[in-house]
Design a protein around this nucleic acid. Structure first.
Lengths: 254, 254
DNA sequence: CCTTGCGGTCGACAATGTCGACCATCAGTC
DNA sequence: GACTGATGGTCGACATTGTCGACCGCAAGG
């Protein structure tokens, strides 16, 4: 495979840099962070700016991400076939289970949330579409790890970050857990990322049985678990939703 | 100002092209649409793909937008100062008015929705964050047209699209309306874009009085209007919310 | 079995993006 | 108020880099 286009890779790196840092970044900071000449960084930023991917604060001169990214991100969702077919099933699942529903796909080293149905009570909740969750400590992530070799590859050999005392941080433990998940066909994660939160996830596959994403429900330990284990009835609901979505995807082409 | 970076502009054009067309596009289609050599288009696509901005359907070989865009779009929202400060006020406004609340900023030739609070009843609604609304036929758009010279400039001299029989399609009419809006300090749009929908909007400005966005409420004509005019009490709510957000923004720096 | 379309590769060429010195401006400071 | 040290931004020479169009292999369709 021939090499990538240098200026484009650099532009992408700049966007990621701006996305990462909380605050706006100055030209010099950007150039220094990526080891570019100021002139070069400026040229890229100027172009990104006039394309709308980056905006410049009028008075400080510093740069931040631009509105066009939001628009394109929305377009991504519009085209996303998995999401489109899952919308109605996710709704049903939320209603049936009374819990929050997430739909996620593998993206880089994590799970990208592409759909989110609020828990059907009236508590205030923030939409998490577009945010990322870790692979090794969430139901969505562990499902993907268990079934998608690419996801397992992303884990590499690096140390796994620990979020709570129940987070699995040893690769061998994760692999054992994945074997279990494959055997029984679903994953759970009880207080492995957030205290008090438990979730149950299952795989979504396309017509050729390739893993393409995962659904999960997520809620308070008290409502999702019973006697220290996740409720079998909820597991059944999640698995049935996952099967329904997979079937729907499979039918997509005919 | 020196020229933009060619490859970057082209990459942006490809992304916009992919965002525009509903379906996935093949390499040749992309190359033809933008009048590029196939090799060139391929190089750009390849780079965009490995950066995650574009994905390729494994079996058809066609391209579509990538997940990274969703993630970056979300990051844009996270950094967005106007949105951050407006969140709580928008919530209050929705509760007080009982209607849907939108928060929009000028982007290219339209209004980009950066925040959306659902109407506080239980009807099913879809999140419109990231989508665009026309300038000349919505309350948000007309507010920006009235106060932001850049917005007025975007209108150019082109013919204005008509959505309903009440859409203003003559530039002179729009300008007259804008004068009125400036005079009284708020805008409305009753069935100018969607039949049965009325909205009321007001300007948000930063500490230096620059227009930075607009808030509006939007709902059924029957609940927003009375005797053929928008209800004064709703106008008051919207204007008060807009002032609150502006004040909040102004205080941001101190 | 040839044709026609597809996505993808290759290598020569020169247009293109890159680099680093340079400029203008502002804020702080002695 | 001139100095200092930041900043964002410009410029033009250079050669790296992206571009182009011919070419490849494959699959579908006549």
């Amino acid at each position: 495979m021939p090499g990538p286009i240098q200026s484009l890779s650099r532009a992408a790196a700049i966007l990621r840099l701006l996305a990462g840092g909380e605050r706006r970044l100055g030209l010099s900071e950007v150039a220094a962070s990526l080891d570019l000449a100021k002139g070069t960084a400026h040229g890229i930023l100027r172009t990104l700016q006039q394309e709308g991917f980056v905006e410049q604060d009028a008075e400080s001169g510093k740069y931040q991400l631009g509105a066009e990214l939001l628009r394109l991100g929305q377009s991504y969702l519009d085209v996303h076939e998995l999401r489109a077919r899952a919308l109605v099933w996710a709704d049903d699942l939320a209603r049936a289970s009374g819990e929050t529903v997430y739909l996620g796909v593998l993206h880089q080293r994590g799970v990208l949330i592409v759909h989110h149905v609020f828990r059907p009570d009236d508590t205030r909740q923030v939409l998490e579409v577009g945010s990322m969750q870790p692979l090794h400590s969430t139901a969505l992530g562990k499902v993907l790890l268990a079934y998608d070799p690419v996801a397992r590859g992303e884990l590499g050999d690096g140390p796994l970050e620990s979020y709570t005392t129940r987070t699995l941080t040893e690769l061998s433990d994760v692999d054992a857990e994945c074997a279990l998940i494959r055997e029984r066909g679903w994953a759970d994660a009880v207080e492995e990322t957030w205290e008090g939160v438990a979730s149950i996830g299952a795989l979504i596959q396309d017509r050729r049985r390739n893993p393409v994403g995962a659904v999960c429900i997520s809620g308070a330990v008290e409502t999702v678990c019973e006697d220290g284990f996740v409720k079998p009835s909820l597991v059944a609901s999640v698995r049935s939703a996952a099967r329904a979505i997979s079937r729907d995807l499979g039918a997509g082409r005919f």
